[in-house]
Design a protein around this nucleic acid. Structure first.
Lengths: 267, 267
DNA sequence: GTTTGTCGGTTCATTATTTGAACCATCGTT
DNA sequence: AACGATGGTTCAAATAATGAACCGACAAAC
């Protein structure tokens, strides 16, 4: 591990509970020599990644990160992070892949990519996806907050004969997506479409959208479902990472072995 | 200069024109050995501060900065950056210091601090400051965009007999603040109050607010004006820096020698 | 179709920086 | 006044950073 990496490690110890950290505290936290820790702190401070509180002498994340985050937003907006992943998802599954952004209680389609494998495939039209009737919707409901669920329950339009329209049915579905880590809608929004979705998270740790694969329902088999799920985990992990977020532990656990590839592909 | 600082330097070479940089380009840019540059790039990549484009192989700012920026916002919101500076500004000038945030075409008071030196002092009441009648307003108008100026011109309420109410008068004032780097309003908003303001900038390089000193007009002398300006430059620089912004070159030049202290106090 | 220039990346002996045990100064408690 | 915190400093020893030369791949030039 290079010295720069060692120094950067300091940055990972800040959190809500620990917004400021002093020299001795760092020294204990990292079990590294105090002098070393001190020089690392000063180096990070000199480049603006850290700053020291004038009175308490403790260190906190510095202003430079704001500038860098701005630069990141310019060069790599969320849409770009998604577009780098969808083609592979579509290619590997042979079905239509799409991603949506959760913004202001709505689920907006960000991008989609159709596989060229089959001549009949699902074509995405809608910009706004219903929360109660799609796999993507289930996923943000399951991992989002209560208010959102109440809102969604209040407007459960019926789209097909399979659409989930009762609160109880929805609760069962959400319980399932929370347990498995996938949102599933079998012809719930459009007839003949079987959708499977995985959640995306942003830097603040909240659900920020979803990736999904929309299949021609008649083509679904246990094998296809398995590859879709595996690819979804990989795609969700990569997009989430690109957005500066992390997959919650509970979800990683739910995904279990499916997540192995994605997790090890960090470098 | 430590190795971590050297590595971090790479991060400062990204900009709008240069959102992605390759190994060789960095090597030329920094005039450092290619192998060294390469290892620095990899180190930064490993900690997520950089990421490499899969096809072009060039490097760009990584997702980790989003997480860090989020952490920064939590521990050091804009108001906190201001509050760390206002007391000193008030103490050094002996007058009332205040700062405002420019948000949604409005100038909102963020915080204020009264000096205890004099028994008669300016007391801040208003949450929203008029753009045409205050030093703070002039400063955001002068360094803001045209639309804002048009908006301000369309509603120039008269507050006192000294309020600027004609478009021509305002243009002259703004020209002056652009030249000097200070917004001035002598009894333009409230009788007996002489205000001097300096602009604040955010990470995107735009005016994001202002710091100002509101004096009892009768107390103003050339000496006081001089110290106020000097302290304002220092305060504006510090707050801007805390917000992840930088003072534009043109403005640094306008402030001239006044800015020396602030600029050298970087470490 | 060989030459030349570029690119990203690698090697390894030399060199310079990082490292850590011990040490200081200062503060608030006991 | 002694104690145990804190942030910060010193210097010889150890380790990690460095850079000249090298590699393979690709693209344009001759």
């Amino acid at each position: 591990m290079s010295t720069v990496e060692k120094a950067m490690e300091l940055l990972n110890h800040f959190s809500l509970d620990r917004p400021e950290i002093g020299l001795s505290e760092f020294h204990r936290l990292l079990k590294r020599d105090k002098a070393t820790t001190f020089r690392h702190l000063k180096a990070l401070q000199n480049v603006g990644l850290l700053e020291q509180d004038e009175e308490t002498q403790r260190y906190r994340i510095g202003p430079a990160v704001l500038r860098l985050a701005h630069q990141r937003e310019i060069t790599m907006p969320r849409r770009a992070g998604v577009r780098a992943v969808l083609p592979q998802l579509a290619a590997a599954t042979g079905e239509t892949a799409h991603a949506s952004l959760f913004e202001g209680a709505q689920l907006l389609t960000l991008a989609h990519h159709e596989a060229s494998l089959h001549s009949n495939r699902v074509v995405m039209n809608d910009a706004i996806l219903p929360l109660h009737a799609t796999g993507s919707g289930h996923v943000v409901l399951a991992f989002g907050d209560d208010n959102l669920r109440k809102l969604a329950i209040s407007k459960m339009t019926r789209f097909t004969e399979h659409t989930v329209v009762s609160e109880e049915q929805l609760a069962i579905q959400l319980e399932s997506t929370r347990r498995t880590g996938f949102g599933v809608s079998i012809e719930g929004y459009e007839s003949g479409v079987h959708g499977i979705a995985a959640p995306l998270f942003d830097h603040s740790g909240k659900v920020a959208g979803s990736v999904a694969v929309a299949c021609v329902a008649s083509r679904m088999t246990p094998e296809l479902e398995s590859t879709i799920k595996q690819e979804l985990v990989s795609a969700a992990t990569r997009i989430t990472r690109s957005w500066g977020g992390t997959i919650p532990d509970a979800l990683e656990h739910a995904w279990g072995d499916l997540g192995k590839d994605a997790r090890s592909s960090r470098n």
